[in-house]
C-alpha cells in the first residue's frame, strides 16, 4: 500500500515573475527516475508543501507534453504561498500527486474551443490551452478570454503574445483597472462578449476563475447557446489531502479533489445551492 501522504522533493529550476504577487516556478523532481516517469493530465493539481510551513493544493500549469518538469503559478495568498514566493532557484519544494480529474480534450475534437479565465484562473487553463495547441489540427477556432484586475496582474505576458499570433486563434484581454499604457478593453471578462462572436453551437468552454466570475460567465455562455454539458469548470475548494479523505472540499456527496476539480455545468447544477457558491 502506497503512503499517499508522503511528498517527494523537487528542485526549483527557474522562476518567472508574473506580477507583484505572483510567480511561475519550473520544478524538477530530485529523483531522476520519478522525474522521467511522472505523468499528469491538464487540469490536475498537486499538493505542494514546504516542510514546517504547510501544504496546499496548486494546479499544474505546464502541459503534459513538456516532459521531465512541472510548472506552477503561485500567488501570495497565505502563509505557505508567501513563503514559496520568497524562494530562489535551487530551493526544494515537496510535491505529491497528481490529483483530481482533468479537462477533457478528446470530446472537443473538431469543435471550437473557448477558454475563459479570470485572474489566477488562467494557470490551470494554460495546461489545457497548450495541450490543445500541441494537437492544433484536431480543433477548430480557439478563443481565449482573459481578465485580470490590472495589466500587471496578467499572467504569462510573453506567452499571451505567442498565442495571439497563432492562426485561427483569438486572444481577448480585459482589465478592471487600466494603467496609462493599456489600450485594451476595460471591464469584467463578460464585457468581452461584445467584442467577439461567441457561438456555443460547435463550442466547448473551459472556465476557471473566482466564483463570482464563473457565475456570470456561465450565464453568458448559456445565452450564447453553449450546452450545459459542454461547459467545463474547474472549482476551487480547500483541499487539504487531495485523496477524498479530509472532507474539506465536499460539495453534496462529491469530493472536489477526487470527483473534480473539473465539473461540467450540468453536474454543478445538480449540486445543492447552499454549497455550490457559484
Amino acid at each position: 500500500m502506497k503512503n499517499e501522504y508522503l511528498p517527494y522533493p523537487a528542485r526549483i529550476k527557474s522562476i518567472q515573475r508574473e506580477s507583484f504577487d505572483t510567480r511561475t516556478f519550473k520544478v524538477v523532481f530530485v529523483d531522476e527516475k520519478l522525474a522521467k516517469s511522472f505523468n499528469y493530465k491538464p487540469g490536475q493539481f498537486m499538493e505542494i508543501s514546504l516542510l514546517g510551513i504547510g501544504e496546499s493544493p496548486i494546479s499544474i500549469t505546464s502541459s503534459p507534453s513538456g516532459k521531465g518538469y512541472l510548472e506552477f503559478t503561485i500567488r501570495t495568498m497565505g502563509k505557505l504561498t508567501r513563503a514559496i514566493n520568497q524562494l530562489n532557484a535551487g530551493a526544494i519544494l515537496y510535491l505529491r500527486g497528481p490529483y483530481g480529474n482533468s479537462f477533457p480534450l478528446e470530446e472537443a475534437r473538431t469543435k471550437n474551443l473557448y477558454f475563459i479565465a479570470g485572474g489566477i484562473g488562467l494557470p490551470p487553463l494554460r495546461s489545457v490551452i497548450n495541450s490543445a495547441f500541441d494537437h492544433r489540427v484536431n480543433f477548430g477556432k480557439v478563443k481565449i478570454l482573459y481578465g485580470a484586475k490590472s495589466p500587471d496582474e496578467l499572467c504569462f505576458k510573453e506567452e499571451l503574445k505567442v498565442w495571439q499570433n497563432l492562426t485561427n486563434t483569438e486572444l481577448l484581454l480585459t482589465v478592471d483597472v487600466p494603467d496609462k499604457d493599456w489600450k485594451g478593453n476595460v471591464g469584467v471578462v463578460t464585457t468581452l462578449w461584445d467584442k467577439t462572436d461567441m457561438d456555443g453551437n460547435r463550442g466547448i468552454a473551459y472556465v476557471c476563475g473566482p466564483p463570482i466570475m464563473i457565475k456570470f460567465v456561465v450565464q453568458k455562455l448559456l445565452k450564447s447557446q453553449f450546452k450545459e454539458r459542454n461547459i467545463y469548470i474547474s472549482l476551487e475548494r480547500y483541499m487539504k489531502c487531495g485523496l477524498g479523505k479530509c472532507g474539506h472540499c465536499n460539495i453534496g456527496g462529491k469530493f472536489v479533489c477526487t470527483d473534480g476539480p473539473v465539473f461540467t455545468y450540468q453536474q454543478i447544477k445538480q449540486f445543492p445551492d447552499k454549497e455550490r457558491a457559484i
Partner: peptide
Amino acid sequence: TCFNVFDGKKGKRGERSRNWDACVFEGYT
C-alpha cells in the same frame, strides 16, 4: 472522519501531523 493536516517545526526538525476537524467550524471551508 474529517481531519486537517498541519506542520510543526522547531529549529531544523519538525513533523507533519493530522488532527480531527469538524465541518461546523467557520474556517473549515
